[in-house]
Design a protein around this nucleic acid. Structure first.
Lengths: 352, 352
DNA sequence: AACACTTGACCGCTGCGCGTT
DNA sequence: CAACGCGCAGCGGTCAAGTGT
């Protein structure tokens, strides 16, 4: 303990600075600085001498000081509500890939979907003069929560959840296409006659986008089929609901106790589908085509395997990274529009 | 486009500094500085005047500059191989809780289990003069990979995966207890006679710890039961294996094609258990008690619900945070030892 | 004219030693 | 003598404008 303390203090006692390695070599700070930044302006001999001496003295380049001077920073913050969500996790991979390639250092901050934490984190990032921010807003976030970052001029892109009244670039999946795809599959392929959109927080922007086209597709099918023979929209099953397997299981159990389920359900996420499928099984319910959204890796392992509508999350992350680069005024190549969703049909909807 | 550019440049053009708000008020920088840091040394009147003026001018405190000056930093890096793993994610919650409480800013860097990225990230954190680091080493990491951070004196704690030859504080689950618990449950409760430890990378330190006590418990049962009537260790099923559901499914399918499974299996993780359970089902295999490790939330939803050995991950994270605080020389209260694992028995092992 | 290096101001903030009232 | 506030020297780098071959 005593020893550790001493060691710690010693390490902190005297930091080796550029000037130390410069003096020790009879050079100026500037030269050492040039070496550290791989400038071609120093001779090879000097360069290797500096490098050797730096190593010998245990010199560690102070990036923070450099950042202060140059007024730029290589830290990009990913601010997200739930690191554990696999979809979100994969998106972060894509962002990291694109930004890492051009030398940025990507770190993730977890808001746990709390606006207060989100506010604090964004504030912190602004204060640290981060290079940029990618954020999936917390569920209850409003335009206010972004006024600070907006005014600061810190390049920011909003991901997945759109916030009304915030004029920041937004990158998200094509929710309209998802809703349409889901409805079409349930109605045209499986001939479902009573359908619902199950789960999802009422505040989450994806839910509203998907519902809109989903309902629209239902209405169109109704017309096509003619009066009476049409497709029905189940409003009760389509009430908003926390997007967890647990909540979905409980809600579905309640509804199943009250009556038969729709014969086709588009779930807000695969997690929701897991809960619904479990409820259908334990309640020995009549056949019901279940479709998830996100296509988590697990879904293929499920019993039954879960059909799901997928948007390539890694590519979505890449797109997001490119949009941010653009926002930072850097040259970018590659597509700037999110990938289109596609359906991965498996057993849970009746395909197999 | 043109407009956006202009706007961006304007925001970047002139940063409002402390001295600007000081001048604008006829005060000195020092006074403004004291206000920004909530020092009691300034009068309430001055304080509110400063605050108002800062707001009016759009002044944003530069934390980075302050950090340079004070030689301290509030950034703590969590360096982990897989953000998506729910166990890891929950651990990060615990770390964040403890560290956040005392004012640190916790951010996560994803190594994707690649040593090169890990090296780069650690280097970056050292360069940025982070306050501390918590890291789950990449699978193939060696002592070398930590020599840099070791020499820098940056307070660091190793999480979950132990690396030989690295004298940094380590916090992990009690793998020995997990192995023992698993063996006992399978053998004593379910009367299994042929058991295995399924999955896990050979390099991962948890695997070796668990295997050791697992095999030991098997050997003891053997003796107790007497020659011939004993419990058998299945070496083939216990070969190392990547810890994913997919890999587990494929391997189990192969082995099942060659012969019957053990009647009791402790899986390296819940994910591995998912793959095994699916294989058992699709191959219509004889009864086999399956135990996972981690108890992910999903496991209770599975069909059948997966039995699992759990260590409270959030508490583990808290412990880890406290150890880091200690390492940073800060006062800490609360336990400094990881929580004990416990078994959550469900249907997959035959309990229900 | 090109090369190899140096000089000194500065990035935005803090902390110490001193005035004022 | 409190209570308030000021000036200045850094923190560890970078960069434009030199100097000397």
């Amino acid at each position: 303990m005593q020893e550790e303390r001493e060691q710690g203090d010693r390490a902190r006692a005297r930091q080796v600075r550029m000037i130390d390695v410069a003096n020790s070599l009879g050079l100026s700070r500037a030269t050492v600085s040039l070496v550290m930044r791989n400038s071609p302006l120093v001779s090879a001999a000097t360069r290797s001498a500096v490098l050797a001496e730096a190593e010998r003295l245990g010199y560690i380049y102070n990036q923070a000081a450099a950042n202060l001077r140059t007024q730029r920073n290589d830290l990009v913050g990913l601010v997200m509500p739930d690191v554990m969500n696999p979809f979100v996790g994969e998106v972060s991979l894509g962002v990291q890939e694109v930004l890492g390639e051009v030398g940025f250092f990507v770190m993730i901050a977890n808001t746990v979907d709390r606006v207060d934490l989100q506010r604090q984190i964004l504030q912190s990032l602004v204060g640290h003069r981060a290079a940029g921010v990618v954020t999936i807003p917390a569920l209850t976030a409003t335009a206010d929560d972004f006024s600070g970052i907006r005014r600061s001029g810190l390049p920011t892109v909003l991901l997945l959840r759109h916030i009304d009244g915030v004029d920041l670039p937004f990158v998200g999946t094509d929710e309209e296409a998802i809703g349409r795809l889901g409805a079409e599959h349930l109605i045209s392929v499986h001939g479902c006659r009573r359908v619902a959109y199950f789960g999802g927080d009422p505040l989450a922007s994806p839910r509203v986008g998907r519902m809109e086209t989903f309902r629209q597709a239902v209405a169109e099918a109704e017309v096509e089929a003619g009066e009476g023979a049409g497709v029905e929209w189940d409003a009760v099953w389509s009430e908003p609901l926390e997007a967890t397997a647990d909540a979905a299981y409980r809600r579905a159990s309640e509804l199943l106790a009250a009556g038969p389920p729709p014969d086709g359900v588009l779930c807000h996420s695969d997690n929701v589908a897991y809960g619904l499928v479990k409820a259908l099984r334990t309640h020995d319910a009549p056949p019901c085509a279940v479709l998830g959204i996100d296509d988590l890796h697990q879904s293929a392992m499920w019993n039954p395997p879960i059909s799901s509508i997928a948007t390539d999350p890694v590519e979505l992350g890449r797109v997001c990274g490119r949009v941010l680069l653009d926002e930072m005024g850097m040259p970018v190549k590659g597509r700037r529009t999110p990938p289109a969703p596609e359906i991965h049909a498996r057993a849970s909807c009746g395909c197999h």
